[in-house]
């Protein structure tokens, strides 16, 4: 699969400003912008980094340039939600998608381990898609709990938080310049663990209709808080109540995007 991707990247590089992917060197592996003439033998697919955030930064810095990105299923979903919120321009992005293995999907409890390129302007997927993995068993356990037990569960989990903001920093969908988590109106400053439950629930609310289940927040958390239990249930509710699946369809407008104009609240029908 890696060879196929490198071949595709090599073919596309002459017409792109560069391709965002992972580069492995003697000191480690990290995101890199491969340009024409670069050594593609250094291009690797593991581990996982939030490459969509790198694409967004590059596109904003170079508003005319066309880039490529080597993306797995969750990266592609993240890019879809970012496109809807003007954080990337899909017209200036070539998506080199690849499928995760069944083992990788199981590790991430991933329901959609292959990029969906339907509606994506320019894309190619390498590899044979595997079936989605079963959901995180902790979600089912959590749903067995009473309200009091759920509260106690989160109290215990959130008490471990060292307020590193890693969940926010790593999240491809967290791109606001002013963050509610740094606003004393919502989160009292100087408290460790942060005040229960505002810090984590404010973030959870902001993830509604945005979270694409990439699990980066959970992987980056030094306190091992099972954040995706919260976000998985949020995704389920958004699906059931509003019929929306974040990251699935690039043409579907996000249900919670409202605009205030002429003294009226306008919903998605006005947006697109």
């Amino acid at each position: 699969m890696r060879e196929q991707i490198c071949k595709l990247v090599a073919e596309k590089l002459p017409e792109l400003a560069g391709v965002v992917a992972l580069r492995q060197t003697a000191v480690g592996t990290a995101p890199y912008l491969f340009r024409e003439g670069d050594d593609l033998s250094q291009l690797v697919l593991e581990p996982r980094y939030p490459l969509p955030s790198v694409v967004s930064m590059l596109q904003k810095r170079y508003p005319e340039a066309r880039f490529g990105v080597v993306a797995r299923g969750c990266d592609a979903r993240a890019l879809v939600e970012m496109a809807k919120r003007n954080q990337i321009d899909p017209e200036r992005l070539y998506l080199v998608g690849f499928t995760c293995s069944a083992e990788q999907a199981a590790e991430c409890y991933c329901a959609a381990p292959a990029p969906d390129t339907a509606g994506w302007p320019q894309a190619m997927v390498v590899g044979v898609p595997v079936a989605g993995a079963p959901p995180n068993p902790l979600v089912a356990q959590y749903e067995e709990m009473s309200l009091a037990e759920r509260r106690a569960f989160w109290q215990q989990q959130f008490a471990k938080c060292i307020k590193c903001y890693g969940c926010r920093n790593i999240c491809p969908e967290c791109f606001c310049e002013a963050c509610a988590l740094e606003d004393p109106l919502w989160v009292e400053a100087g408290m460790l663990a942060p005040p229960f439950p505002m810090f984590h629930l404010v973030r959870a609310m902001h993830m509604a209709s945005r979270c694409v289940a990439c699990r980066q927040c959970e992987l980056v958390c030094p306190a091992h808080i099972p954040l995706t239990v919260l976000y998985d249930l949020m995704r389920r509710d958004i699906g059931e109540l509003l019929g929306y699946e974040p990251g699935a369809d690039i043409a579907a407008a996000p249900p919670l995007s409202l605009t205030l104009a002429d003294g009226m609240v306008h919903g998605q029908d006005q947006l697109l």
Partner: peptide
């Protein structure tokens, strides 16, 4: 980016920090 530090990423493969950082590291 173009010679300017624009951000920090933790390293998921590092044996000590294992993909995490504290607020100071970030």
């Amino acid at each position: 980016l173009d010679g300017e530090i624009v951000g920090v990423f933790p390293d998921p493969q590092h044996p000590i920090s294992r993909g995490s950082l504290c607020i100071k590291g970030w």
